[in-house]
Design a protein around this nucleic acid. Structure first.
Length: 849
DNA sequence: ACCTGTGGCGAAACAC
DNA sequence: GTGTTTCGCCAC
């Protein structure tokens, strides 16, 4: 990254907040020269406001309880829904909370629900995470920001010239000229090195319960700070001796590391020293700091009556509080890594739980240190190593693989105009909302209330009778043709839903529009139509993101010698996250800029498209064996057929169909969303089958794996009898092991991820019973997010926690039925019955005799 | 205050 | 007994 040119007078906008003390928006800059945090208050005189259709004099003549209305201004906005200019009153108030008071007094208000610091960003057109430099001209600084975005797309432009094939980009530029102009600043700014640190603490605790951050009744015994400057500090409580700082070589992760150890006899001094050190770094990472470490430190400091560096935001409750730092930006990586959009789109759902241990294992290949005995009874060195290791893992999570996580956060922040502090704590719907709000403000469009959208479009009844607790119908799943199929081609539509939204011009202001001529522009065979007169904002943005990602960033990211490769990989991933989530948020009742018809119409068009392909394939004489939402599985199609289908799709449907893969062997059971596909090179894909699920006992997973290994030898139908015999033999030995109780307890464990606290379940399932048993027996609080491991037993309760059960307790019959159902999904297709394995003859053999 | 969606399978409890 | 509901986990 060093070669990227950024002047030393540049600053990176780490975050924007509302500062209650000054009643102003506050910028938190990272100064590239001094490498420190610089705070700056808004100097443009911007104030909180909302819009209303009540005329200014009427607003002013209302009997406001105090001096909350500063002034009223007439403003003109474009109403996208109504397609007309509207004159509104901008009611400017003193404090952000006054907006609520105004909203409660006036019948119609707009934009009153937007957080003040977000509103400030939209109004000033600021890019959070962007690189800025101070402007020379201070004349204009009274009313505008004193910074200018650094335009640094020289690299990209040079590259375009060098390649001499800018046609693709040229096409994008022409189609999305306005967006391209506005987003290339966002896409082409480098991400400079930022000084940062990660923090972790340990406390004393009670026999019975996990330390409560709100009570903070036990002393902090250790804190560790790992930095990206090679400086690691551990703060330790050592009551008997005097305070001391030593530099010591400690063995962390198998290697000797130089660590600064600070010993304190008083906890107050430990905390003061930690807080002072926290001030030295502009960017601080924690793993679960909002829910534990920083919450604990905050309450502990209050209890001990010492100054603390925290700024607490949020009301508490289920959403929890946010513990910001007054002189740094606090990023809680737990929020980021547990965010479903990040988890699935950026990390491919790779980590099994959202614990530091599992995420570190998946991303870094390293785990937490396993301690023997209680944390608060360790030798001081062992405690220091344990605590420091957690802090180092946290830092590595943010910085590993070319700073992937940090880059993703900064880029998503830039694209979605969301400050880092908010981005890392909020979900994808907030990001997309902020992005769309910013675009509205940029174009002077009125941001509608959700009610306005429903008033104008009307309350359509989603397309067909719905299943209960579903708002609309989703994808179409083809009834599979069970059997062992050879040479199966899988064709699928490239990002179908985003393509539909883009190609069919779906957006809240274009769907079911009121122009008479648009009524004929229907979506597939649905009742919906979209506008032919104007381009929808959502559709345009999504199309732009998709095209620029596929045509530019994905291509460029592949080139290893490209200095922008790492940045472009992160941009490509950021765009993927947003593209993948857009259809989902459109179907969410909480998303303010949506109407149910957008999601319903998208899914309906998807069903139409896949049915068209199925019809065409059959017309070409090819059997469709299976398909799900955007894919079709074709039985031994010729190259010609595949090419014809792909061409036909582009020409007649307007969607790109692709040959995804060819399975040498594809085993389809009678179940949907369950199959095994073996590719030409012998690698395979298991989808949906029980043998792959995380809550299947390990020994069954292993047995299933062995069966799959046998199946990968399968090349043609003549080999089936041999394969059958090998599988029968394998399964018999597994049933035998279960019967003889030769499987270790650990291998029999069923692992279930709790989605609620045990007391909140309506049904007393085995895992709920076990969770409650564990709470009673060990006095350990079991909470949502934890994993319960249990085995099925002969005891009256029917199940037992793994750590309590013995081999004799195991209910052999239950495990045999588990084996049955896991294997039945594959073997009945092969012509083997479970009864046959159990030593009984099946019907076919009976008649053959 | 916060929150992407629907379709589908299997285990087990619950309702009758 | 059966049918329905709740729950977790997965496909897309």
């Amino acid at each position: 990254m060093a070669e990227l040119s950024v002047g030393s007078s540049s600053r990176l906008l780490l975050s924007v907040r509302y500062d209650a003390e000054s009643n102003k928006a506050q910028m938190l800059w990272y100064d590239l020269e001094s490498k420190t945090l610089v705070k700056e208050l808004d100097a443009t005189g911007h104030g909180p406001y909302c819009l209303t259709n009540v005329p200014p004099n009427e607003v002013l003549s209302k009997n406001w309880s105090s001096e909350i209305v500063v002034k009223c201004e007439e403003v003109t906005k474009w109403n996208l829904l109504e397609e007309k200019e509207v004159k509104l009153t901008k009611v400017i108030v003193d404090k952000p909370t006054d907006v609520i008071k105004v909203r409660n007094q006036l019948e119609n208000t707009w934009e009153s629900h937007i957080k003040y610091h977000h509103n400030w960003i939209y109004d000033l057109g600021i890019i959070p995470g962007g690189l800025y430099s101070k402007t020379e001209n201070t004349e204009e600084s009274q009313s505008t920001l004193r910074y200018r975005l650094i335009h640094d797309f020289r690299q990209m432009e040079a590259r375009l010239k060098e390649m001499q094939i800018p046609q693709v980009i040229q096409e994008i530029l022409e189609r999305y000229g306005d967006l391209m102009d506005n987003y290339r600043d966002v896409f082409n700014q480098p991400i400079p090195e930022i000084r940062c640190a990660a923090v972790d603490i340990e406390t004393k605790y009670d026999e019975m319960s996990f330390p409560s951050p709100q009570k903070a009744e036990y002393p902090v015994i250790a804190a560790a700070m790992a930095t990206n400057e090679g400086k690691d500090v551990v703060f330790l409580l050592r009551e008997q001796e005097g305070d001391e700082e030593v530099v010591k070589q400690l063995k962390v992760k198998g290697s000797l590391q130089e660590v600064i150890l600070r010993y304190f006899s008083r906890e107050e001094d430990l905390l003061k020293s930690l807080f002072k050190e926290l001030n030295e770094y502009p960017l601080i990472f924690t793993f679960n700091g909002d829910n534990f470490d920083f919450a604990y430190l905050y309450h502990r400091a209050k209890r001990l009556k010492i100054d603390h560096p925290f700024v607490v935001r949020g009301a508490g409750g289920r959403g929890g509080r946010e513990y910001l730092l007054s002189n740094a930006v606090h990023i809680d990586l737990y929020h980021f890594f547990s965010n479903p959009a990040i988890k699935t789109s950026a990390y491919g759902n790779a980590y099994p739980t959202n614990s530091l241990d599992d995420i570190a294992d998946t991303i870094l290949g390293e785990r937490k240190i396993q301690l023997e005995g209680r944390i608060d009874e360790q030798e001081l060195d062992a405690l220091a190593i344990y605590c420091l290791n957690d802090a180092q893992l946290t830092l590595q999570l943010a910085l590993a693989r070319d700073r992937t996580a940090l880059q993703l956060m900064i880029l998503l922040g830039r694209i979605c105009k969301t400050p880092l502090e908010d981005l890392n704590r909020s979900r994808v719907s907030s990001w997309i909302r902020n992005l769309l709000y910013f675009e509205h403000r940029r174009k002077n469009y009125l941001i509608p209330n959700q009610r306005d959208i429903y008033d104008v479009i009307g309350r359509v009844t989603p397309h067909q009778a719905m299943m209960k607790d579903k708002k609309f119908k989703g994808g179409f799943v083809v009834e599979p043709i069970p059997g062992v199929h050879f040479n199966v081609a899988v064709l699928d539509f490239a990002s179908l839903y985003p393509s539909i939204i883009s190609a069919k011009n779906l957006s809240y202001e274009t769907i079911l529009c009121r122009h008479p001529e648009c009524v004929n522009n229907v979506l597939g065979d649905t009742e919906y139509w979209t506008c032919t007169r104007r381009k929808g904002m959502l559709s345009n943005l999504l199309g732009f993101f998709r095209d620029v990602r596929v045509l530019w960033f994905k291509q460029q990211a592949k080139e290893k010698d490209n200095p922008l490769s790492s940045l472009y990989q992160s941009i490509e991933k950021s765009l993927k996250v947003l593209i993948n989530a857009t259809y989902g948020v459109m179907g969410s009742e909480f998303f303010p800029l949506s109407h149910i018809s957008i999601a319903d119409g998208t899914a309906a068009t998807g069903r139409w498209a896949i049915r068209q392909i199925i019809g065409k394939a059959e017309q070409l004489g090819v059997r469709v064996l299976y398909g799900d939402t955007d894919s079709v599985f074709l039985e031994s199609p010729t190259k010609d057929v595949i090419e014809t289908l792909i061409k036909w799709s582009t020409e007649h449907l307007g969607f790109d169909l692709e040959l995804e893969k060819i399975y040498r062997v594809c085993i389809l059971s009678r179940r949907k969303k369950n199959y095994l596909g073996i590719l030409e090179d012998g690698s395979y894909e298991i989808k949906g089958l029980l043998g792959k699920k995380r809550n299947t006992p390990p020994f069954i997973q292993r047995a299933f794996q062995e069966m799959v290994n046998i199946l990968t030898d399968l090349k043609d139908p003549t080999m089936l009898p041999d394969i059958r015999e090998r599988i029968k033999k394998l399964l018999k030995s597994y049933y035998n092991s279960v019967e003889k109780r030769r499987i270790p307890i650990e291998e029999l464990a069923i692992a279930v991820h709790l989605t609620k606290n045990p007391e909140d379940y309506e049904m007393e399932t085995p895992f709920v019973k076990v969770a409650k048993q564990l709470e009673e027996k060990f006095g350990r609080k079991i909470t949502r997010g934890m994993i319960i491991r249990y085995v099925r037993t002969n005891t009256p309760e029917g199940s037992m926690a793994v750590e309590l059960a013995k081999v004799e307790d195991i209910d052999v019959a239950t495990y045999k039925t588990y084996l049955d159902s896991t294997f039945e999904q594959i073997i009945d297709v092969l012509g083997i019955s479970t009864r046959e394995i159990h030593g009984q003859v099946n019907l076919m053999q009976f008649f053959q005799k």
